[in-house]
Simulated scan of single mutants.
Amino acid sequence: MNTLKSTKAKILIIEDEAVVRFGIARYLEDSGFEVIEEGDGQRGLDIAHNMDLDLIICDLRMPGIDGLEILRTLRDETPNLPLIVISGTGILSDAVDALHNGAWDFVTKPIMNMEILEHAIDVVMERAHLISKNRRYQAELEEVNHQLRRHLDLFEQDATAGRRTQMQLMPPPEERLGPYKISRHLLPCLYLTGDFVDYFIIDHNHIGFFLADASGHGAASAFVTVLLKSFVERYRQQLSKGGDLCLLRPAYMLACLNQDMRRQNLDKYLTIFYGVIDTESNCLCYSSGGHFPYPILNDGHASRFLDTRGQPVGLFSDPKFADTTVKLPQEHTLILFSDGVLEALPEKKLSDKKTRLLKAVDQCGASPIDICNILDLKADVTYPDDITLLVVEREAK
């Protein structure tokens, strides 16, 4: 009962036998609960209507309004309020009637061992906690779905408006986050597609960033990026409230995204690279959900690919994601490309395309526009897929 004691649960006891009521109340108070006592069914019901309670313990047989009537009333009015019925009849049908009318548990009198009642309280309070947690989660999902429906309406009205909405959901093209300058550059194709980037401060010494690409083209793929943004915002809100720490654990974050994506039944998936930089230890922890081409790390002298093998997010029921941690040079630049860049490069072999990307980064450093220029990627040309660059730069002190 540690959790219950720490939260000082408030329990109402409705029992017409004063001796029984007194014994239960004293035991529960000694166990750390706040207890309200009432010997009359009607007055007990009035208290239940006017006070915020965590649990009611109610006698089944009482003069006037008895336990069954209280059960039926509160079952309809407050179905998530736990009620434990106690009865001295020992008749099986009484227990069945009580449970059928909304009791969460049934304990017979006399209660020779109060640990029996204590265990019943544990069980129903844990059940109530899970129900409350599920309600909050459902409310969050409903809010997310409400936002998604609003955004989807915008996409269906006009593809241009959809593209504009996508861009508004992204962070500024260039932003300073602590010691880092992070910038993005997008060369859009003719249709709405699924490229999306975001970067943000997680806490005082962690920065998060990702580049994602939803499968397919059109409003449905763009909708997935809105879905992604909504989920990440929810993770950030949970973290700010002292909840789930998934944003600090890249592989776990991708696993959470995978579950949330599959719950939507959209028949869509996305590839994603998610990284977390610890500005205090100067380390990068990252995980990949099938992102390709691999990110390029430049230390001011040479560039190399980071190995980011992994499975897409939302495609498989139980994909395997792994965290990789690398010590970063004091001066470094991390460059991420979406796969649209591979379609735009003229080289036939993949190895030649990768070599050209490395050379472009060596020549241009941290400017995404300069990298596009050296790769001969023009803003006024329509490409078959979006080309997105995300650049994370830390300059030498």
Rank of each mutant, 00 (worst) to 15 (best):
D16L: 14
R249F: 15
K348R: 12
K327I: 04
F292C: 04
Y27A: 00
A161G: 06
Y235A: 14
R149S: 13
L28N: 09
G208C: 04
H301R: 15
N101P: 01
K348I: 11
A220D: 05
H129Y: 07
G178C: 08
R43N: 15
K397E: 14
N298E: 08
Y286I: 07
R263Y: 05
L81S: 09
G32Y: 05
D323C: 00
L154G: 08
I56S: 11
I121R: 03
H119Q: 14
G102N: 01
A9D: 04
M167I: 11
E17F: 10
L247D: 04
R184W: 14
R163W: 04
T279I: 12
D40R: 01
Q138L: 15
W104M: 06
Q330M: 03
T160F: 05
A255R: 03
Y286G: 11
L270P: 05
H119W: 02
E347G: 01
E156D: 13
R136M: 12
L190H: 15
W104V: 00
G314P: 08
V124S: 05
D244T: 11
E142A: 13
T325I: 11
R150V: 14
G162H: 10
A219G: 09
L74I: 15
K353G: 01
R149F: 09
F223M: 14
I272P: 00
D318T: 13
M261A: 13
K268C: 09
E140S: 12
C285D: 06
C285P: 00
E29C: 00
L342Y: 00
V85C: 10
Y235N: 09
E395R: 15
F209S: 05
L334G: 14
F209Q: 06
H119P: 00
K229N: 15
S288C: 05
